[in-house]
Computed example of a mutant assay.
Amino acid sequence: MMDEYLSTNRMLMLRIIGARITDAVRLLDHDSAEDLRTEWGPVVLTFGDGEQVILDVEEAKSNLMLRDAHSIPPTSAWYAGFHIRAKIIEPVASDPLGFLLTEQVVGVEVISREPDPGVPDSFAMCGMRIKTESGHQVCIGTHLTDLLIPEVAFFLPEDVDPELQYRALHGDEHI
């Protein structure tokens, strides 16, 4: 049986299609000099209408977990240890992911990889590939490289494991 959060992920991913992302903020429990696109910690995506989605790692099955920030706000006790907020992306030409904050999302694909033996739904939704109106793409998720690191990471498609699998997300499709 499919884990319930995968259905929630699907619903929240569908809400991203047609939206404009206005901010991507990493929640941190420490100051970091690391690249915030691959640093450990949840991420809050904010959309043009003010809605927010929290991206986190479901570690038991190595999947990305999306949460509506209304149900578990980033200021809740669940995220109390993450007292630092750091922007991951800037809407400037020098930022390789800056397009994500300036263009409308036109498509989302589910990223998966072969499951671990005996662990149903593992890697079933380890990430999502977002496509924008100009054709730019970003892969967001966990275990997206051959290093299999459990983080919410933002990668350009050429930087992820070529063994990943992609499936278009449509409103009438069941995952």
Rank of each mutant, 00 (worst) to 15 (best):
Y166P: 09
P162L: 07
E151P: 00
L66W: 06
I111V: 12
M1V: 11
R113G: 15
N63P: 03
R129K: 09
S7D: 12
R67N: 07
S134G: 09
E109T: 08
D23L: 10
I89M: 00
V152S: 00
D29A: 15
M125I: 04
M11S: 14
G81M: 05
V110Y: 03
G127M: 00
K61H: 13
E58K: 11
V105P: 01
R26W: 07
R37Q: 08
H70V: 15
M2Y: 12
P42S: 08
P73V: 02
S32P: 07
V138Q: 01
H70P: 04
T145P: 05
S32K: 14
L169T: 04
R85E: 07
V160T: 10
T132Y: 02
I111K: 01
R10L: 06
M2I: 13
P96F: 00
P120W: 06
R67C: 06
L164W: 03
L148W: 09
S134C: 07
M125H: 11
D146K: 11
E39T: 12
A86E: 04
P96S: 03
R10S: 11
E151Y: 11
V152R: 00
L148F: 13
S71D: 12
L28D: 05
R20C: 08
T22C: 08
S94M: 09
L144G: 00
R167F: 14
E114Y: 10
R167T: 15
K61T: 15
D146L: 09
R85K: 09
W40D: 15
C126F: 01
R113V: 14
Q52G: 07
V25L: 06
M1T: 12
L144W: 05
V108Y: 02
M128A: 06
L45N: 00
F155S: 09
V110P: 02
A19P: 02
P157H: 08
D121R: 06
V110R: 12
E51H: 12
T102V: 12
I17K: 10
V108K: 03
I54Y: 01
D23V: 06
L12G: 04
A168D: 12
V53P: 00
M13L: 13
S112K: 06
R15I: 08
I88C: 00
T102N: 13
G118E: 07
S71T: 15
E90R: 11
A33T: 15
E109S: 13
L100Y: 03
G135V: 03
D116H: 11
L97W: 04
E58W: 10
M11V: 15
R113E: 13
D31F: 14
E158Q: 11
H170N: 09
T8A: 13
S32V: 07
H83S: 14
G50Y: 01
I54N: 02
F154P: 00
M128C: 04
E158V: 12
T8K: 06
A153P: 03
Q104Y: 12
L14F: 03
E59I: 15
V57C: 02
A80L: 13
S122D: 06
L66Q: 06
K87M: 08
H30M: 14
